[in-house]
Design a protein around this nucleic acid. Sequence first.
RNA 1: GCAGGGAUAGCGAAGUGGUCAAACGCGCGGGACUCAAGAUCCCGUCUCUUAGUGAGUUCGGAGGUUCGAAUCCUCUUCCCUGCACCA
Length: 1033
Amino acid sequence: MMIEEYEFKKIEEKWQKKWDKEKVFEARELNKKKKFFLLEMYPYPSGSGLHMGHAFNYTIGDIYARFKRMQGFNVLYPMGYDSFGLPAENAAIKEKTHPKKYTENSISNFINQQKALGLSYDWSRILWSHNPEYYKWNQLFFLKFLEKGLVYRKKSPVNWCSKCNTVLANEQVRDGKCWRHGDVDIEIKNLEQWFLKTTNYADELLNNLDSLDWPEKIKVMQKNWIGKSKGVEINFEIRNPDKKPKLMIVHGWGGSPKENWFNWIREKYKDKYEIITPNLPNSSNPEIESWYSELEKYKDKLDSDTIVIGYSLGGPTICKFLERNKIKIKKLIMIAPSSPNYTKEHLDWIKKLDALPEEINSLKNYLQRLNLNLNNLKSLLGETIIYLSKDDPHIWDFDKRLEEYTILSPKFKIFENKGHFNSDFGITKIPELEEDLINSWPIFTTRPDTIFGVTFMVISAQHPKLENFITSNQKKEVNNFLKKITTTSEKNSEDLIKEGAFTGSFAKNPLTGEEVPIYVGNFVVSDYGSGMVMSVPAHDQRDFDFAKKYNIPIKTVINPPEGPLRNEGKSSKDLKEAYCGKGILINSGEFSGMNSLEALKKISDKLEIEGKGKRCVQYKMRDWLVSRQRYWGTPIPVIYCEHCGIVPVPEKDLPVLLPEKIKFGEGNPLQTNSDFINVKCPKCNLNAIRETDTMDTFFDSSWYYLRFCDNKNKKEPFDKKKVDFWMPVDQYIGGAEHACMHLIYARFFTKALRDLNFLKIDEPFKKLFNQGMLYGLDGFVMSKSRGNVVLPEEVSKKYGIDTARIFLVSLASPDKDIQWSEKGINGSLKFIKRIITYFEKNKSKKEKNIDVNPKTQHKIHQTLKFVTEDIENFRYNFAIIKIRKLFEQIFDLNLSKKDSEILLKILNPFCPHITEEIWHRIGNKSFLSLEKWPKFDENKIDKKFEKEDEIIEKLILDLNNIIKIFEDKKTKLSSLYLYCIPSEKEIYLNNLLDLENRFDLKIKIFSVNEKEIYDPENKSKKVKPGKPGIYLE
RNA sequence: GCAGGGAUAGCGAAGUGGUCAAACGCGCGGGACUCAAGAUCCCGUCUCUUAGUGAGUUCGGAGGUUCGAAUCCUCUUCCCUGCACCA
C-alpha cells in the first residue's frame, strides 16, 4: 500500500471528486440529528485568487465542520461570494472588461482553488450577491424597511472618498481617511442620501452583547462603537442680538390675526421674535388656493430657526404649505388642529355645524383637497407640539385624532377643559405655551453637576444651522476661521489645535440666568447631541484649552475631595489644567457643598421639574449610510417622480435589474444610462427617473447567512421554516476587522427582519471565533499588490495539501496572527509520512499479537478525550501535538483494527485526503469523512499510567546520561541492575522488555527489601519513590 | 488620549501561583542505517558541575505581595489592534 509523496496530488483529486460526486457534504433539513450551522464570512472573490491566508482561514473552519459532522451533527457548512463591490468595478475598468465577467471569472477560480483545499462545503448551497435572484431580496428588504421607517433619505454632511468616487458609511472611515485608501482624506459633502435606521436598535444591539459567546475583544469594540452615554439635555435660551427668529401664527377658520390670544403673544414676544401673522381668508371663503397665495408671500421669510403656531384649521393648512414648498422649520405648534385628512366622520361633523350651506360646502371642498402627506412632512419639522383638549367640541374622536398625528412623533399636551381653546379664557390661560416659545437649544451633557461653571458655549463648525448664530459684526471673523479649518489639512486629530471664533450670539444658563457667549469651534462634532456643547473650562480639558486660548473666564465649581482647594488664592490664570474628576461643589448656589454625584442627581431633578431639561441617553453610533454612487452593486429600488415625490418600486416589479450594457467614464454609469433611468412613475404613470445609487455591499452581506438556509427559493428571500430550522449560526468564523461593520449590520438586519416577521431569532451568530491573520514573509498582510502572496497550489505541489493544512494549524493557536514561512513545514510532512508508515506496518502485521495492554488503551483513550476537547475549543495545535505523541508511543505496537482506526478518524479533520485513502486501503468501503467520531471510554483512562510513564521516562533519561559517560570512556556495558521500593517493582517489570530492547542490556530488578540482592556499589541506598537506584557494568 | 492584546531559550510557539530550566515544532549538534547523499530512526540542545546528581542565572525592564512568581500587584519601556475632540 506504500503511498509515495508523488501520489499526494492524485489522491487529493481522487477524493475531492468522490466527495463531490457522491454529495457527501450536502445538508438536509432532517430532524433526527441535531443541526449545526457552521459559517465562515463569505469572501470577496478577489481577482488575484486565493492565497495561503484564505487557506488558513478555511482550514480552520473545515476542520471544525468535519469534526462536527463526524460527531453526528447535521452540519450546514456552505460557501458563497460577496461579489458586488468597488474593487471588482475598479479592476474591471482597469482591465477594460465588464465587472460581471471579471467577477464571475474570479468566482470560478475561487471555487476551483477552494475545492483543491479539500474543503467540505455543501456546494449545492452556493450563492453570490451579484445574482439577480439574490439582490432582488436586497431590494425587497429595502422596500420593507422603507415602509417601516427603517430607511430614510436625508441631506446631511457625508463622507466622500475622491478615489472611490462615492460616499462612505461612518464605519468605513478611519483616521479621517478612506478604509480602502489610507492616503485619501475624506471630504465632507452635504448630500442627500439613503440611511438605514440602525440607531433604532442601538439599545438592543448593546444589551444583547452580554448574551453572545463572542470574543471579549469584539464585544468591547462594539460597545465602544455604539457608545452609549447617559446624561441630561439642558435647554439654553439662545439670543442673536442681530436677528430675531421668526414666529408665525396661523389662525383658524373664521379667525383673524386680531384674535385676543394672538395680541397677547405679540405683546409678550415682540422683543424676542419677529412675528408674522398672515391674514388668511375668512370662514366664508376657505378656498385652498387663496389660503396658499396669502401664505406664499411669507415663503422666503421662513427658515430653519422659525417657530410656527397653527390654530385649528390653520394647523393642517400650514402643514400642507410646508410640505408643498419643502420648507424646514424649527418647531411647529398646533393648537386644537383639525384632522389632517378628510374622512366620513369629518363630513358628518361638518353637517352638524351651524353654518351656511356654502360655507359647509367650501370647507368640505377644502378638506378634500388638503390631502396631507404627513410622512413627507416629518423630515421638515425639527419639533412638533400638539395641544388638544378632551372636551373640544370640534373633535369627534379624540383617540383617533391623537393617532392621526402620531406619525409626526409630536409631543402631545393634553388638557381636560380647554374646549377649542377659543373660549372667554383665551389661550393666555395656557402657561405651557410660554415654555414652548422659549427659543432654546437642547445641550447634551454628562456632567450637569458642572452647570454653574459654564462660561461659554461652542457650536460645531460643520453645523447646518451655524448661520443662524452669526451676527454681522462677527461674520468676518467667523468666515476667516471657517476658511482656515477647511484649508489646513492637518486631519490628524491628535495634533488638531482647538480653535474657534465668537459668533456674536449668546446663550442663557437656565439655572444661573447668566448669558454666555457662543463660539464656533473645530472640536465639536456636529451630529452628536445637538452639535453644541456647554463649556466648563474649569472641569473639561478641551474647554480649558479653548478658554485659555481665547481668554474666556474659567470658573471653578468643583473642589477635588482630597488635595488643595482649587479656588483658594488662585486666579484662573494660574490653573494649569482642568480638573475632570468628582468632588464637592462650590459657587453653585443651592447645590454648593454637595458632592458631585448627589449634585448630579439634584440638578437633573431640578431641570426636569422646571421643564428646563430632561435626562436622556446619547449614542455615538450613527445611522448607516447605504447609498453608493457606483455601478457594481444592488440598484436602490426607488423612483423619483416630479408629482408624487419618492415612489418605491412596486414589489411585483422586482428585481430592478442592474443593466449590463454600460459605459464607464465619468462617474456612475447608471446615471448616463437612459434606458435605466427613464421610467414611468408607478403611481401616476408620468415620466419619472430611477434612483441611480446602489447599495453598500454590506447590505448584501447582512443577510446572506439566511439565504444559505434556502438558496434556491424563487418566491421569497427564504422559507421561514428553513430559517427557523438552521438559524442561528452555531459557529461563525471570521476576522476581527468586521467587528464594527459587518457584525453590527448583520445583527441589525436580524433584528429588523425579526420585527418584520421574517424570522424569530434575535441574534444571528451564537458563537464567534476570530481566526488570526496570516502575514507574508515580509511581515505584511498578504496581497497581490505587495507581491508577498504564497499560493496554496505551490505549497501543496511540494508537500501535499494535507501537510499544508496540518502545518498551518500546528504553527500556533488558530486565533493568533502568524507569519508565513515554509520553515517547519517539513515537520508536518514527516508526520504525514509517519502516519502512512504506521498503517503500512500495522497492516502487514495482520491480526496477530495485538496489543491489549491497558496502558496502551489508556493512552489511546486519554488522547481521544483531549483531542475531542481541543478541537471543540479550536486548540488545533494541541490536538496535533497530542496525536503526534500518541503515534510516538504506539508506533511499534500492533493495535487492533478498531484501535488503529481511531487514530485515522481523529486525524481525518486535519488531513482528510490521506486518511480517506488509508481508510480505503485498509479495506473499508465507506467514506471515512462520514464515519462516527470515536467516543472515549472513561473506564480505560487511568492516571496511574501517567505516573508510571513519568517514572520510566525519567529512568530512560538517567540511563542515557550514564551510558553516554561510559561511551566516552569506551567501556562496554552489558548488564543493568535496578533497585526500587517494593511497591514500584511491578512498574519496572512491566517495562522490562521494552527497556532491554531499547538499551540492549540484560536487566535485573531488585526490590530494596530483597535478601538476595546484587549491589556492589550500594546503589540501593539512593532509592527514593519514583527514583530507582541504578548500577551498570 | 481611550480601550483591548502582546513581549517566553537561535527561531516559531505553549505555559496564567508550587509538579517550570519551561510542552511541541523548526533549526542546530551527535549517533544508527548507507559506499555516499537523502529519507528514516535514536539521543542531545540556558550555564557550570556530576554515574542518573547538584548548583546557578533565566520568561521586555524596575520594584512589591508570597514560604514560593513566567504566572498576582505597582511603576516603566517597546510592539500590535481598534476607536478617536462623543461633551
